[in-house]
Structures are given as C-alpha cells and as structure tokens.
Amino acid sequence: MIEVSKVRKSFGDQVVLRSISFSVEAGESVAIIGRSGTGKSVLIKHLVGLLSPDEGAVRVEGQDLVGMSERQMLSVRQKFGMLFQGAALFDSMNVHENIAFPLRRSGVTDGAEINRRVKSVLGLVELPGVGGKMPSELSGGMQKRVGLARAIVHRPQIILYDEPTTGLDPVVADSIDQLMMRVRDQYSVTSIVITHDMRCARRMGQRIIYLREGQVYLDAPAEEVFNSEDPQVSRFIRGEADLKEVDFS
C-alpha cells in the first residue's frame, strides 16, 4: 500500500534521511521509533507528500508522489487521515467545524449526516458535548482526541500518527493509546505511528521500524524488536543512555 524506496532528504548541509526503504501493507499497523532528531517526523511527512525527498520514491497504492504537483496530490491525500503532534486544530473553527471539515472536503454535503458523524466520532473519543467549544478552551489531551476524531471522521484508508502521546500525562497517554487501538481494530485501517513512547509502540505496532541516524536500523515484528539483544535497540527500548555518547562538557 505504501512503499518508501531509497528516500534521502537533507535541509541545507544537514542530512536527515539517508536512503530509507520500507513498505507497509494494507491493514498493517507499524510503529516507527527512534531517538529525537532521527528524522521520524520528516519521514512521516514524506508519506503524505507534505515534504518531497531529494532522492528516492514514495508510492501510495502504486502512485509515485515524487514529482506530483500539489493539486495532483490532493486526490491521493483523500486516502489519509493524520493526527499531528500538536493536534493542529484550526483555531478559527470550533470543535464541530474542525471535525466536519474533512467530511465536507470528501464531498458529504448533507448537514444531518455531517452532524450525525461528528457526534458519532466525538462519542468514540469520549468527548460528547464539546462540539461548540473552541480549541483554545480544550486541554492538550482533549485537543489530541479531537485531532484523532478529525483524522478518522471521513474513514480514511491510512492513518498517520505523529507522536500521539508526547507531552501528555500517563493516564491521558493511555487513553489515546486505547483510542488508537479501537480505531485500528474497529475500522481495519492501515496505521503508521511515529513515537518514542515504548508503551504506545508496543500496543500499536505489529511491526516496528527503528530509525537511527537517518537510516532504518531494524525493521522487524514487534516481539522480535522488544526482545532484541542488540545493544543499540535494547538500550533505546529500556530508555537507557549510553554514557559514552553523552557529552557532559
């Protein structure tokens, strides 16, 4: 369904991604993990065409996004839903309008149908009755849940989650994890999660891709990764710093 082939991306002199290749099948749930600054968010933005690689190809259902114009890419993007790290809710719209937005964009014009579906996803993310509130009136966790509702309301084939639990307290993070699992199981969507939260990766990822220094260091089933004896991988999973790599000066 998604194929990333030899993608390289740099910003000025800084090379962020170095020849990254992997593929994700329809219905699969993949977690991409790695330390901060390894290019996880840059990679996920390539999958939906928000960034274009310097080299390589990104194919979604066989269509190569590289070289497509912004307008040509619009039809490909209808297959996607995306939850952003900061939720990225439109602050000029209330919650109801935010969630209705992708529905209207996908061609649903019947007001009653829009209201029904917005209400339904707000129920799914356990936020009934907040439709009239503005994003600034919501807590960070509530914004993430609204962002999730907005990402799934038009029933996309692929959902991308960019650090869905970052900055949330463990209880709220747990509720977001459970919501993502519910969405994955209920709608059978292809899910790609970028995270450095190991509990989130373990719960969401049937397969784990570990990025290190802009490259795929390990791409394996979740159990294999979590039981890995490779010191790089196991240290990252346990959240232990390699003191040789830490500069205290």
């Binding site: 619009l74 993007r77 996607f80 900061g86 602050d91």
Partner: peptide, 21 residues
Amino acid sequence: AEIGTMRVTEQIDALRTMATH
C-alpha cells in the same frame, strides 16, 4: 500573522492532508 501562525502550528499541513489546497 494569521496565515503565518497557521503555518508554524502545522494547521496548513493539516489542511493539505485533508486534500485542501
């Protein structure tokens, strides 16, 4: 200021992912 804030808070990226130019 409005469009710039949308840009730096990823709201414009969100628009693009929702198939909106």
